[in-house]
């Protein structure tokens, strides 16, 4: 059996080169471009991990902020006692366990129930964490003081991006990936060909949640002072949905196409018009549904097929192709 097809090798090489050049960036710039690139890589990993689950299942998960916050909080609570890499692992595991519990409770049911449940999940965990902290008499704010700088975060995120792409590629060519595509087409058929649909969805949700938890942990040093309100910020969940859908979720690299423009746009808006961010998020949702229902990816695919058809018409008319 062939291990890699020619196009897979090509994409792999381009991807590796791309990630390597991102990792070189700190040599050139230590300022705004670096910060922006860290943001972009952050959302690339989050959105791709989100799309791993939500792309094939069509379940819109708003649990990103919850998993991310759990990762951040694991670091905040443990930074004085345990080494950072171990805390990232713990953050990932905690997020994975919560994803499993949420999945078992909600994924047997229709998509609407799932959306509603995940909508408030971050807020729920925030309330519980706040309450536990006050019960145990610890202060709400926690300091995370490390030697990690923006370039270290960038390198870790680049590693996570490589991980999430390889994981996504492996899943896509595995039985689990095939099962998810069948579920996305027709869940009834999926069950009748022997797929345990609930289990498949839960497994994928756990994978996605674990990655998001790890990312939250990696980013914890950036905030240095961490409060429940700051760590469990629901806005991340919505931004991830917008960027992933804007790019397109039918290809592994689709979300990338949404992350880059939206991160730059959002960065500009929040620095120049900080009171308009909600409005921008709202309009972005609306624009995606009405103008780009299949994302930038789908738009280009449609454009390409339109041009092919157009060419055929021209050739049939006996005219030269422009």
């Amino acid at each position: 059996m062939r291990l890699l097809s020619a196009s897979e090798t090509r994409i792999g090489v381009i991807g590796a080169l791309g990630l390597a050049s991102v990792a070189m960036l700190p040599l050139l710039d230590q300022g705004y471009t670096l910060t922006l690139t860290v943001n972009i890589m952050l959302y690339v990993v989050l959105c791709t991990a989100w799309a791993l689950f939500s792309g094939p299942t069509h379940y819109i998960s708003l649990a990103t902020a919850a998993f991310y916050g759990l990762g951040t909080y694991a670091v905040a609570l443990g930074i004085d006692i345990l080494p950072f890499p171990l805390l990232v692992l713990i953050g990932a595991l905690v997020a994975g366990v919560v994803a499993g519990l949420v999945g078992v409770a909600t994924l047997r049911l229709s998509g609407v129930y799932f959306v509603i449940f995940t909508l408030g999940l971050a807020e729920l965990i925030r309330q519980v964490v706040t309450w536990l902290q006050s019960e145990m008499g610890s202060s709400l704010g926690l300091y995370v003081l490390t030697d990690l700088r923006e370039q270290h975060l960038l390198w870790m995120l680049t590693g996570m991006a490589a991980l999430v792409y390889v994981a996504g590629w492996l899943i896509n060519r595995s039985r689990l990936g095939f099962a998810m595509r069948i579920i996305g087409n027709d869940e009834t058929v999926a069950r009748h060909v022997g797929i345990d649909t609930a289990l498949a969805k839960v497994v994928l949700f756990i994978i996605s949640g674990t990655i998001i938890g790890a990312v939250g942990a990696i980013l914890a040093p950036r905030y240095s002072y961490i409060t429940p309100t700051g760590a469990f910020n629901s806005m991340i969940s919505f931004q991830v949905v917008i960027m992933a859908l804007l790019g397109g979720v039918h290809r592994l690299w689709g979300p990338l196409l949404g992350v880059i423009p939206f991160t730059i746009l959002f960065d500009q808006v929040s620095s120049r018009f900080p009171n308009h961010t909600s409005l921008v998020v709202g309009l972005a949702f609306i624009a995606i549904v009405y103008l780009l229902p299949r994302g930038v990816l789908g738009f280009f695919a449609d454009l390409a097929s339109l041009r092919r058809r157009f060419r055929i018409v021209l050739v049939e008319d006996g005219k030269a192709v422009p």
């Binding site: 039985r175 095939f178 099962a179 595509r181 069948i182 058929v189 060909v193 022997g194």
Partner: peptide
Amino acid sequence: ENVTAGGVFG
């Protein structure tokens, strides 16, 4: 793939 779907999980 429609056909394989029947033979992978059953």
